[in-house]
């Protein structure tokens, strides 16, 4: 193998003889990525932090005026924005709880010897891989009051899913549950298959009932992985934009991302939208922090 070495460098210098030193390779491999992310993710955020203290409107040529914390004060005193946060919270709770129930439930069903288990699992995972925007659009047809297959299958007549302001948020959450329960299922299956078999055997010898086994063995052991699924889905549901934006335009489904989008790109209140973006950003970073801590905890096990 040594003959394949192609180097004509001075042999007296070990680093030169062996090509680049490890430290320069490390820097060469890591620094470009970090720089790229700083330039295209962090720099824009610094830029918008600056604008968040101004009354800038990107639709006009008027120069930006410094207004201090005015935008933040206005936003935090705006009941409209608070209602957007409340809608978002409600949406997150419904959709994550639904995904947890359905996803974990299906995983419990699947966690046994079933013919074609691999194929069924892959098929069940399909919805989460598809484009939210494009598939979400098609749910409009499924929800259609007069010729949608959902009303037909459930015998609901001409039930209004998306046009009824009270129902619309639930309809969006239902589609989200359909798309993302597979994610909870996938993680739950991993958790369930990691529960040592001998615990169940011991429980069977002790004549423990199914409830006891579930609450004392299964659930505690799967809990950390379920927690990861919940935190991750909470974060994603909090950011939801595509699905709600495409399915309805009801004020009752105006999630915080949609409010932000409208403020920035329809009302062109650029300065104020930058301030709102920062409020949202801090919330997301807080959840991300919890998520990463949990990930590392599970990884260590």
């Amino acid at each position: 193998m040594a003959t394949t070495m192609i180097t004509t460098l001075d042999r007296s210098s070990r680093a030169a003889a062996r090509g680049l030193s490890d430290i320069s390779i490390r820097n060469l491999f890591i620094i470009p990525t970090v720089l790229f992310l700083i330039v295209f993710n962090i720099f824009p955020l610094i830029y918008s932090l600056g604008y968040s203290f101004t009354d800038f409107r990107a639709s006009t040529n008027a120069p930006a005026n410094f207004v201090g914390l005015q935008n933040y004060r206005d936003l935090l005193n705006d009941p409209y924005v608070w209602s957007n946060f409340a809608i978002t919270a409600k949406y997150v709770i419904i959709s994550v709880a639904g995904q947890l129930l359905v996803g974990f439930g299906v995983a419990m069903l699947l966690n046994r010897d079933i013919p074609l288990k691999g194929l069924l699992t892959t098929l069940l995972l399909l919805p989460m891989m598809l484009s939210m925007a494009v598939v979400g659009l098609f749910w409009k047809l499924l929800y259609d009051p007069s010729f949608g297959i959902i009303n037909y299958a459930l015998g609901l007549g001409t039930f209004e899913w998306l046009a009824d302001p009270k129902m619309a948020l639930y309809a969006v959450a239902l589609t989200d549950i359909w798309m993302w329960s597979p994610f909870v299922m996938l993680l739950s299956l991993a958790g369930l298959s990691a529960v040592p078999k001998h615990l169940y055997e011991a429980a069977a010898i002790d004549r423990a009932g199914p409830f006891y086994t579930f609450f004392r063995i299964t659930l505690p052991l799967v809990a950390p992985i379920l927690m990861i699924a919940v935190i991750f889905r909470t974060m994603e549901a909090f950011k939801t934009f595509d699905l709600a934006y495409i399915l309805t335009s009801q004020p009752t489904t105006e999630l915080i991302s949609i409010r932000l989008y409208k403020m920035a790109f329809q009302e062109w209140q650029t300065g104020r939208s930058c301030a709102l973006a920062y409020i949202v950003l801090i919330m997301v970073l807080a959840i991300t922090n919890i998520y990463v801590k949990y990930l590392n905890k599970v990884k260590e096990r």
Partner: peptide
């Protein structure tokens, strides 16, 4: 993890 709309505002400008 940043929400796309948050990043999109400054990137758009």
């Amino acid at each position: 993890m940043l929400p796309p709309v948050v990043v999109a505002i400054p990137m758009f400008l």
